[in-house]
Structures are given as structure tokens and as C-alpha cells.
Deep mutational scan, measured.
Amino acid sequence: TETYTFDSEDQAEEFAQRAQKKGYTVEKRKENGKFKVRVE
């Protein structure tokens, strides 16, 4: 499980979609103005 942090929602969304296409489970959340994407 890895967590990635992005400054913009667009970046987080793009990353999450790519990860989902590769078959990963993706969980997105906003925390302290940053966008976190957890991938497993």
C-alpha cells in the first residue's frame, strides 16, 4: 500500500484513474488542503 500526495485535485484524479486502469484499488481523500491517493 502506497499513499501519494498531490497539490491539485486534477493531478490526484488523473493518477487515480491510471492506477485503477492497472487494476489497483484506489482511495482518494482530501486532507489539509492536499489530495491524497492511497493505492493497493
Rank of each mutant, 00 (worst) to 15 (best):
T1F: 14
T1A: 13
T1Q: 10
T1P: 12
E2L: 14
T3M: 08
T3D: 09
T3G: 04
T3S: 06
Y4A: 03
Y4G: 01
Y4I: 04
Y4M: 04
Y4W: 11
Y4D: 00
Y4K: 03
T5P: 02
T5L: 08
T5R: 03
T5Y: 13
F6Q: 00
F6D: 00
F6M: 01
F6S: 00
F6G: 00
D7G: 05
D7Q: 05
D7R: 04
D7I: 06
S8D: 12
S8L: 08
E9H: 06
D10A: 12
D10T: 10
D10K: 10
Q11H: 07
Q11F: 05
Q11I: 08
A12H: 01
A12S: 04
E13A: 07
E13K: 05
E13H: 06
E14R: 11
F15E: 01
A16R: 05
A16H: 02
Q17G: 06
Q17P: 00
Q17M: 12
Q17E: 11
Q17K: 12
Q17N: 10
Q17Y: 09
R18K: 10
R18F: 10
A19T: 05
A19E: 06
Q20T: 11
Q20D: 04
Q20K: 12
Q20H: 08
Q20W: 08
K21G: 09
K21T: 08
K21I: 08
K21P: 00
K22G: 10
K22Q: 14
K22R: 12
K22Y: 14
T25D: 07
T25H: 13
T25K: 14
V26L: 03
V26F: 04
V26R: 01
V26S: 03
V26I: 08
V26K: 02
E27S: 13
E27Q: 11
E27F: 12
E27V: 13
K28R: 11
K28S: 09
K28Y: 13
R29C: 14
R29G: 09
K30G: 06
K30Y: 15
E31V: 09
E31M: 05
E31N: 03
E31S: 05
E31D: 07
N32E: 09
N32W: 04
N32D: 12
N32I: 02
G33K: 03
G33W: 02
G33E: 05
K34W: 07
F35Q: 01
F35H: 04
F35E: 00
F35G: 00
K36H: 14
K36G: 04
K36D: 04
K36L: 15
V37L: 03
V37Y: 02
V37K: 00
V37R: 00
V37C: 02
V37Q: 00
R38W: 09
V39F: 04
V39G: 01
V39C: 04
E40P: 04
E40N: 13
